[in-house]
Write a protein that binds this DNA or RNA. Structure first.
Lengths: 150, 150
DNA sequence: CTTGACCCCGTACCGACTACGGGTTGTCGA
DNA sequence: TCGACAACCCGTAGTCGGTACGGGGTCAAG
């Protein structure tokens, strides 16, 4: 099949397929006489593997590593476990900081009751206060007693 | 003050300060005779404002917009509210997809009990199955009755 | 007079694509 | 058979928010 069909069946963009080829994630296909790329079902499986890993949030280096394990199935799989563990940790850290962010933004949002002008807007006032080193609703100063002068 | 002190007090990198200046987020400072940037306390407030907004996950275009409201405090603040609402939505979407991801990765992780070789590793087998179009533990096919042929 | 800290500028790099521009080939209807 | 248009080729640049590098200037202390 040609690149357009592969991309469609792999649910990604043609440009993305070429990108994976450049990155060495997808095997180089044979070419037709006119230079068009000519893919097999094996290429489609490779592409789906990459896309599946991407949908799990893995980066391209990790996917490259996994492809290495596919090529050498006799290797111990500890590294695979570590890889997934690291990924889970990353996601956890992101979740934690997004939860904090969500709370901060909600708090900030509630300080404005709309239909005012910008100078009276609670959101703007909070952001400006924070910049001046004073307390803001979104980052209440509960850390080590604050930084105020003696 | 010079750029080093500003960066330190604004809790960011010297390069970042120069970057904000290039991006037009931070007003251009006066220069000393030797060409060194010479900042005032007002610059520090600007920088802290930017960093505070960044810590809330806002992008530079949004921060630019907010600076516009600081410059024109008589404008209605609806746009500010929208801006924060959009930010909250973004965070929500990210949280949702990260929650899904977390569950998928945990499920996947539990399919390997370690100390095997890669060909027997449940994680690897799942990923490979998924690429072949079969069911995997991390993406069980429960969506709208599946896509199987009639 | 040299060392080291600080500053200047411009440019390239990160990740994972996405978009663009300019050219060739294939396919279809008129 | 012609012309339109889709699909393909390639290489390069842009996205975002910085970070890092290279090569050089300035200044105070030892």
């Amino acid at each position: 099949m040609r690149i357009g069909e592969l991309a469609q069946r792999g649910e990604c963009d043609v440009e993305t397929v070429r990108f994976y080829e450049r990155e060495g994630l997808l095997d180089r296909p044979a070419r037709e006489a006119n230079g068009y790329r000519c893919y097999t079902d094996a290429h489609l499986v490779q592409l789906k593997f990459i896309r599946h890993c991407r949908s799990l949030g893995m980066g391209l280096p990790d996917i490259r590593a996994l492809r290495g394990f596919q090529a050498n199935p006799e290797l111990a799989c500890d590294e695979i476990n570590h890889l997934i563990d690291r990924q889970i940790e990353r996601i956890h850290r992101q979740l934690d900081s997004l939860h904090v962010l969500e709370r901060q933004l909600h708090t900030l949002r509630e300080t404005c009751c709309a239909n005012q002008n910008a100078s009276q807007c609670g959101i703007m006032r909070n952001l400006t206060r924070a910049a001046a080193g004073e307390d803001c609703s979104c980052h209440p100063s509960d850390r080590k007693g604050g930084m105020q002068k003696p």
